[in-house]
Design a protein around this nucleic acid. Structure first.
Length: 306
DNA sequence: GCATGTCAAGTTGTG
DNA sequence: CACAACTTGACATGC
């Protein structure tokens, strides 16, 4: 009933009901256009997306949501090898930069925690050099955005196992060690539902002095012998040793737990899936649910009533 | 204007 | 050894 900690919930990337839409443009479409037109098109989309991000944070602040995950393609195709670009290239660069500055101040004024989550195709453990190069490009992009908006997390999965987890994690560690500070200072690893458990990643994170985002749904899909309480405790200790607020992910499976090890995300979070040991913490919990802002608001309500 | 297909990425498992 | 599945929402295209 009386929560001592300050649990904050995070909204992921987009909205279900609010009329806030981010725009996209594909490499294929761009490649059919001359460079000048490409940049005009990209500028239009980027400006739209920065304005939309501002509105998204307005909504987040008004509804007492404590965190927001920024979608990776906020600037579509930024790190693409053929059609990639920098803000300087865009006709609307001055308004874009100006709005980023406003977003940054707004974030700070309202204490909204911002994060990035490069998708599964970004793999630092890959044995393929071009995969790692592309990942680096994407991380540089997200690091640049992170710097501009004052985000504190770029959260990454550990990637594939290639038949040998130890070697894969060694490659990962080597590559984290050479990341620019702008990225490394924001980097976290997250346990996934197929390959890497908290048990696998905690030692890596400790060695690299980077935090672990604990996804309890993934942990239930891919258990490692550790209880949720035990992992929670270790993860909190890790974040605190770095002087930072712990970060978790929650989701509920679409078709219940009986339908196999992993399932697509449900529209809402079943409050029963929310770990009891998270209740009174000071921590951030991203709500991964298809009903987006509706799911965040419902979960807040449900937990307040327990 | 709506419905269907396409895009974007890397890994893994299947055929 | 080649290819589909996985994931996802918006874009792009065709009727």
């Amino acid at each position: 009933m009386t929560n001592t900690g300050k649990l904050r919930f995070g909204l992921c990337c987009i909205f279900r009901q609010e009329p806030l839409k981010f725009r996209q443009v594909t490499a294929k479409t761009l490649q059919a256009l001359p460079r000048k037109i490409q940049l005009e098109r990209l500028s239009e989309v980027c400006l739209h997306n920065v304005r939309t991000l501002q509105k998204a944070l307005d909504f987040v602040a008004e509804n007492n949501i404590g965190a927001f995950r920024i979608l990776s393609p906020l600037f579509p195709r930024y790190s693409h090898p053929e059609v990639g670009y920098i803000i300087e290239d865009l006709p609307d660069k001055s308004e874009i930069v100006q709005r980023f500055a406003e977003i940054r101040l707004f974030r700070q004024a309202h204490d909204i925690r911002l994060s990035f989550h490069p998708d599964q195709f970004n793999v630092l453990s890959s044995p393929r050099p071009e995969v790692v190069r592309n990942t680096m490009r994407e991380l540089e992009y997200q690091g640049m955005l992170g710097e501009m908006v004052d985000a504190d997390i770029i959260n990454l999965h550990a990637g594939g196992t290639y038949g040998n987890k130890k070697d894969a994690l060694k490659r990962l560690q080597k590559r984290v060690d050479i990341l620019p500070q702008q990225i490394r200072s924001r980097l976290s690893l997250e346990n996934d539902d197929k390959s890497y458990t908290p048990h696998d990643l905690l030692p890596v994170c400790q060695k690299l002095k980077i935090p672990l985002v604990y996804d309890v749904h993934h942990h239930r899909c891919l258990p490692d012998g550790l209880t949720e309480e035990a992992v929670t405790k270790k993860v909190i200790a890790l974040w605190h040793s770095l002087g930072r607020e712990p970060y978790f992910h929650i989701s509920s499976p679409k078709n219940g737990w009986q339908g196999g090890s992993h399932a697509p995300h449900a529209d809402y979070i079943d409050p029963a899936d929310f770990p009891a040991c998270w209740r009174n913490l000071t921590a951030t919990v991203d709500v991964e649910a298809k009903a987006k802002e509706l799911a965040v608001l419902r979960l807040k309500k449900d937990l307040a009533g327990c």
